[in-house]
Every structure is written in C-alpha cells, then in structure tokens.
Amino acid sequence: MNVPQPIPNRRLFRGPALLLVAILAFPLAARGDYAYLLPLGQLCAIYGIIVTGLTLLMGFTGQISLGHAGFYGFGAYVGAVAATAGRLPVAAALGVAVAAGALLALAAGFAVLRLHGHHLALATLCLGVILGEFINKAQITGGAGGMFDLPEITLGGLVKGSAAGKFYLVWAVAWLVVLWAVQLTASPVGRALKAIQGDEGAAAAAGIPVFWIKLKVFVISGALAALAGTLYAFVYTPSYLGPEEFSLMFSVTLVTMAVIGGMGNVWGGLAGAAVMTSLHELITLGGEKLGIVQVARWEQLIFGLLLALILIFCPEGLMPALGGWAQRARAWWGRRWKMRTRLEP
C-alpha cells in the first residue's frame, strides 16, 4: 500500500491564488454605478479577518467566544486613542492596538479558558459586554458620541481617500491573514486543534499541550479582531468612530458569520463574512428594485428570516453545501458525458 502524502502545495495554494485574482479584479468591476460596492468590500475584508480568527477558535479548537466584538472594539479604540491623545503615528498606533488586543486576550484567555461549553460562552459574552460598556461610557473614547477625524492610513499618500486604494489595503492584510491561516490549518497544528475539539483529555494523552494551544489560538483570534478594529478605525471610517459597531449583538453576528459559512475550514468564515455583509446591501437594493417603501423597517426582519432559511437548507454552512452541490453537478455531468460517449461510436 502506498504511503500517504501531504496535500501538495499546488492544491493548498489554489484557494489563496484565486482569492488574490478576485481581490485584484473586484475594483475593476466595481466602477461607476457599482462604486458603492467598494466600501462594502472593505467591510468584508475587515470582518473576514475577525471571522478567520473565530474559525480557528471555534471551528477548529471548539472553543466558543461570544465576546469578539469586544476585542474588535478594543483594538479600534486603543488605536484611535493612541493616535489622537497618544500622538503616535498611525502605524505605531496600529501596532500598539494589536499588541494591546493580544495582551487583553492573553489575560482573559488565561482566566476563562479553564471553562467549557456554555460556561465559556457566558464568560466571553460578559467580557464582550464589559468591553462594549467601557467603549460606550468611558471619557477617553468619547462615549456614545464617538471620536471624530482620526488620522488615516495613507501608505505615503498611496491610498489617500480613494475607495479602491483602501479596498486593496484592507484586502492585502486580509489576504495575508488567510494565507497564513490556510498554511497553519494544513500543518500539524491544525490537526492538534481539531484533536482538542474532539476530546481534550485524549488530546493531552496524545502529547498535545491543550491549555497552551487553546490560549495561543485565543490570543491570535483576539489580536486579529483588534487588527480588524484598527483597519475599521483608520481605513474604513476615519472620519467617525462610534460605539454602535461593537455591541453585544455584533459578537453574535460574528459567530453567525462563522457558522453560516461553515466552520470546517478557513474559507467558510470568509464566505460567511461576505454573505452577511452583503445581505444588508442586497436587501436594500432588492427593496428598491421591487419598489417597497421603508425597506429599512423590514430589513432586520428579512435579515433574520434569511438567516433562518440558510440554516434550514444548509445546516453545515454555505461552503460545505456549495461543495456538495458542485460535486453533484459534476457527477451529473459525468453521467451525461458517459452516456454520450457510449452512444456516439
């Protein structure tokens, strides 16, 4: 019998390569009437970064977090405060924010990762609400009023003010994150993470340092959320940073993105982020096209309904469902092909 081989590089890096092409092409397509899609695309990248971390944490390691909007907001505000009150250059503020997010996740993870299942869910939920309340009420964050006119990341004037430039910037970061996550999950670490999800006791018996690995993943996911926060603050909306984005509900939305896309691999999270982000736009657009007045009032309702529908029809998530359909389509084509070749000669 043949010795099994690792996944070849060609196959592993096909996904990131396709993603890169899509990223490069998107702004070329989103022109003129469709230019409004560019900010949407930026948001997809920002959420995609957070959800990639969440996929590692929840989909691979099996540790739930209902508090990641907290880390996201923490990163955004630490960066903003460092850049305004702290007078740091933007790049340094970004570094400070990511480091602060990682440190916070380290401290929090050290405490709460002893908990399991629902208890972990509650603890992280509390963490998220606490962070959200700080953002909403503290003096230094501007409270409910928010902060205005943050410095912008310009890369030496390269992306100043241009939506396409910003798009490329955030997606460059997101692409690197995805590229890294794809490699990590294909390495023995990915296996160890899934082993921890399967059975922590057995994982320890297999020589896997369970707690440390859980902690590392938690820190990484916290740092990624903080990184996304800084991108949100410095790139997406530098003119105004408010607390609405970082509510308790957004933590739940982030988890929803991960679950909807399918948590078995990195791509699911990305797909979930893209779908959830564009749903809002699609609903508004669809409402306009259909001539429905006051779409905004119905938007949340449609949003909730779509969520339920996706879950009912693709309970494993969108990506696995798509994979299944693709396979079935291929099988169907294959049969047609065989029939034709049989008939022809």
Partner: peptide, 13 residues
C-alpha cells in the same frame, strides 16, 4: 498523526 508532535505555531505558519 496527532500524537506525533509538530505543534509549533511558528513552524506551522
């Protein structure tokens, strides 16, 4: 394989 080590995040990256 899970019991064969190689759990370094740095090397896995």
């Amino acid at each position: 394989l899970a019991a064969m080590g190689g759990h370094s995040f740095w090397q896995g990256s």
